[in-house]
Nucleic acid binder design. Structure first.
Lengths: 157, 157
DNA sequence: TTACGTGCAAAATTTTTGCCCTCCA
DNA sequence: TGGAGGGCAAAAATTTTGCACGTAA
């Protein structure tokens, strides 16, 4: 918890030391390995939202010698390549979504539940707002919403 | 990484063991303590988005004996009480926002930068969509957007 | 043969908790 | 005087990394 607090640095290594995606990785794509294929398929076949630990458990049935570190590295690579989507969660580990069709997520801050929203969003409005606010332009296909689901809301009353 | 994977359970303790907010805490409010006041003021005076470690550093100037655990507990209590807002971040610790005026956040997935968007959102549209999708109703005043900021986007090309 | 990917274990980071003590209501 | 809050240290949960070794181009 020392110096590594500044975001937005352009160093080759990110805060926790993970390597930034490079031209090569983007222009030439990923190497397709057994492990990455298995991780990708697992996320896609999860038909929903799955976390790294669960991916690890499932992939191990196919590749018993795969390590959790490799699963994390594969998820990161697939995320950077745009093949899967990472959903940040205030109440637990990151979740991964293999559904690349346009849809949004609504995430419960309290229980972590994630639901898909198949809604046509006024993205142009949002992008205009974003550029008015400092994100001079946003490159994104997905937006996550954080709220409180009804179950948790009523549990609080 | 064992059994505690099921979200959405209604147990008194959440996944990581943190206590759920209770009726009492909500109906009677929090006890106002030096520590909680200091944490709240620090978040409010940060005029932006501040993480727990930074809150700890700053609060220690006033209360040198406060512990990081207490800061986390205070932030959680203030968050549950609705006095501050917790911003989840894919690239670092959670950030806290003491600005309760209606505004949204746009968060860079890559560098963690958070910007405010002072935009009037079509909330009714969003809520209608949410209820069509399973979140039968959402109780929320804020929504976070996750995207890639221009800096990071251009760094990837 | 060189760069990339992997397995493994260890470390780093962030957050939560157990325990005991204090203090106010 | 009993229960909530706090200090401290330890643990838990999640994610990343160092290193040695393959492997495929």
């Amino acid at each position: 918890m020392a110096e590594s607090r500044e975001k937005n640095d352009n160093s080759y290594y990110t805060r926790r030391g993970n390597r930034r995606s490079t031209d090569m990785e983007h222009d030439q794509g990923l190497q397709i390995t057994q492990q990455r294929q298995a991780v990708l398929r697992t996320v896609q076949q999860a038909c929903g939202h799955i976390d790294a630990g669960e991916v690890y458990q499932r992939v191990r049935r196919l590749l018993p010698r795969i390590s959790l570190g490799t699963v994390y590295r594969a998820l990161g690579a697939l995320r950077d390549a745009g093949l899967i989507y990472e959903i940040v969660n205030s109440s637990g580990p990151a979740l991964y979504d293999g559904n690349l069709n346009a849809h949004q997520h609504i995430i419960c801050r309290s229980c972590g539940k994630v639901e898909d929203m198949d809604v046509e969003l006024p993205v142009t409005l949002l992008e205009r707002s974003a550029s008015a606010s400092g994100f001079s332009s946003i490159e994104q296909s997905r937006i996550d919403f954080h709220g409180i689901c009804q179950e948790c809301a009523s549990a609080r009353n």
